[in-house]
Design a protein around this nucleic acid. Sequence first.
DNA 1: GTGTATACGTACCGGTCAGTAACATTGTCA
DNA 2: TGACAATGTTACTGACCGGTACGTATACAC
Lengths: 198, 198
Amino acid sequence: MKKAVEPSAERPARAADRIRASAGELFYREGIRAVGVDEVVERAGVTKPSLYRSFASKDELAAAYMRDYEASFWEKFEKPGGKSYSDAREHVLAYIRVLSANAVAAGYRGCGLTNATVEYPSRDNPARQVAEAHKRLFRKRLRELAGGMGARHPAVLGDALLLLIEGIYVTGQQSEDGPAQSAVTVAKLLIDASVAKG
Amino acid sequence: MKKAVEPSAERPARAADRIRASAGELFYREGIRAVGVDEVVERAGVTKPSLYRSFASKDELAAAYMRDYEASFWEKFEKPGGKSYSDAREHVLAYIRVLSANAVAAGYRGCGLTNATVEYPSRDNPARQVAEAHKRLFRKRLRELAGGMGARHPAVLGDALLLLIEGIYVTGQQSEDGPAQSAVTVAKLLIDASVAKG
DNA sequence: GTGTATACGTACCGGTCAGTAACATTGTCA
DNA sequence: TGACAATGTTACTGACCGGTACGTATACAC
């Protein structure tokens, strides 16, 4: 449907794409260190040399996974539940509502970018660098939204929301029925206590 | 000083203790998966068979590390900065004050128990089991303290504090000067908005 | 058909991993 | 002195790890 001259409706995906998809699932569910390149290529239905033709190393594959994850993160964050929001408060609350619902479900694995910074404490790891850069951006975006809510101190409310969200990511994988179930209430509390009243 | 018949003031620590100490440092700083047993025994100044005489496997050594970590956690939590607190609000704020100061410093590595749940998503991992049990206890303790503060909904304030604290743990290792620097302000906001006024 | 380029697979490498077998050494206490 | 417990020494295993040298299949050009 994309192009008229396309030879076949569903051409088999290229090896590199299959590898990215496979790595995305495995790295997210089991952790990067826990997954070997053999497992990645086996699930992708390709062979190891195909991996190393497209990626210089496992670390670089992990970095590619981080970039893919970040792209899909921003989609989910900017349109929580598939909807756009003009009101900053509603926007953030909608994201947290969706997030906390996922986080109390079985098998939740949190944020792939956050998890990578835990797996790789060393600052020069390529995957970690992508994750760190993303978190700086996310912090900035939340500060922006906090400003849009009319917060007295947008930096503080932004940080508060970031701490809350990261708390959801990580406690969500510690247990089902964890504190994430209170997240929406807490977010409202935080926002309402931070915006100027009267 | 423990016993009068002690032969020497500083008797060389037993191999098992040296291994626990070595594993504690290495596992915490670099992550459990990232550290091999050879590195653990080398740092401990002992040999591999000594490790496997005291611990059935690396996983069991990791579980022992979790138990040690938990013990030292409770010490730090119940007496933040070495001081006891009778007031619940002051107690929690003191812990968060110390914690956030550490979390914005370079090389911060968060909570070893939290990190282990990220490293080991599988529920049957021995180390993870210790960590999960601890987090349940910690949640209960925070709820108790929230009650002591006079919160309208102690469960909600307890969860709010837990989400905040876990947020500090994890963002503290993503960057220096992260959102953890706002943690004390956020905690006060949260507590004050949760206790009945008038 | 014969180049030629692209895309892929077969088979292998050296290193590291967790874990163990067999034996030697030391210190302690009786 | 003798026995026991704790530890060290050495060497090894099999599995797995990330990574690669090299051969092969397909498709399109002329």
